[in-house]
Amino acid sequence: MKALSIKQLKKTYNNGFEALKGINLEVESGDFFALLGPNGAGKSTLIGIISSLVTKSSGSVEVFGYDLDKNNERAKSCIGLVPQEINFNQFETVRNVVLNQAGYYGIPRKQAVQRTETCLKQMDLWDKRDSVSRRLSGGMKRRLMIARAMVHSPRLLILDEPTAGVDIEIRRAMWQMMKEVNAQGTTIILTTHYLEEAESLCRSIAIINNGQIIEKSAMNSLLGRIHTEHFVLDITQPLTHAPLIEGYQIELAGNRTLNVAVPKSQGLNPLFQQLTAQGVAVSSLKNKSNRLEQLFIDLVQ
C-alpha cells in the first residue's frame, strides 16, 4: 500500500515562478521518508499541496489511495501536518489548541479530551495545558504543533523541519518520539536541513532541486554510493608537513590536525599502520562531514 502517490505534479505561482515541474513520487506505507532539498527547491510547495494549503496547477496526489481531488476529506483525514512556521492561535491555551484540532477532525468531545491528554503527555506538555500558547518556549511550541498533528492519529505524519531552532536535548527527544511514532505504524515524511537527522532516522530519501526530484532511493543504497570518506585526525605530536602515504590524500590543517580522504576500497587500517610506521600517533578521529551531507552537496551542485 502506498501512503503517498504523486503523479506529474506541477505548480506555477501567479508571478510565473514554476515551483514544481512534474513531480513523481511514491512513499510506502510505514516508511520513514526524508524529503531533502536546498532552500527554494520546492519542498514547502510540495508539502503545501499534499496538505491542501497550496492549490496545484496540475497532476494528482493520492494519500492511502484517496485522491485529493475526488476524495478530499478522506485524504485529509489520513494526514497530520507539523508545519515549518508556528501557525496555532497564540491566544488559545495549549489544551484548546489541540482540542479544537480534534474537533475539526470530527472527534467527539469525550474522546477528544482523552486524545488531547495523551498527546500532550507524550510531548511532555501536560503541565503547560492551561498556559496561553504564546508564552511557551520555541521548543515547546514545536512540540505543541506535533501534539496537535497527532491528535487524530494520522496514518501519514508530515514533519516540515520540526527540529529547526530547538536545542540538541529537545531535538534528541523529538527524534526518539518520531522513531516511536513510526514504530507504531505511522508513515513519516520528514524535511530537514540537519542531514545527520535524516541519515539516522529515515529509511528512504528523495532529494528535490529546482522543482524536480533528482534522487530517490533507500537511504542505505544512497550511502553505499559514497566512494571516499573524509576524516579529521588529531595527533599527539606537532608536524610541520603532512605525511605522505600512498592511496590517501592527507592535508595538514594545523600542526596537530590532519584532514584525510579515505577511499572506501582502502579502509582505515592501512592508514593507521603507515602513520604508526612514520611515528605519528593519533589521539582521536572523527568524520569531517556527515556522509549524507557530502552526497547532498554533490547532488544539488
Partner: peptide
Amino acid sequence: QHHIEELLVAPVP
C-alpha cells in the same frame, strides 16, 4: 496568524 491552516488541513467542508 496563519491558524486558518488548522482548518484547511482538516477535513472540514
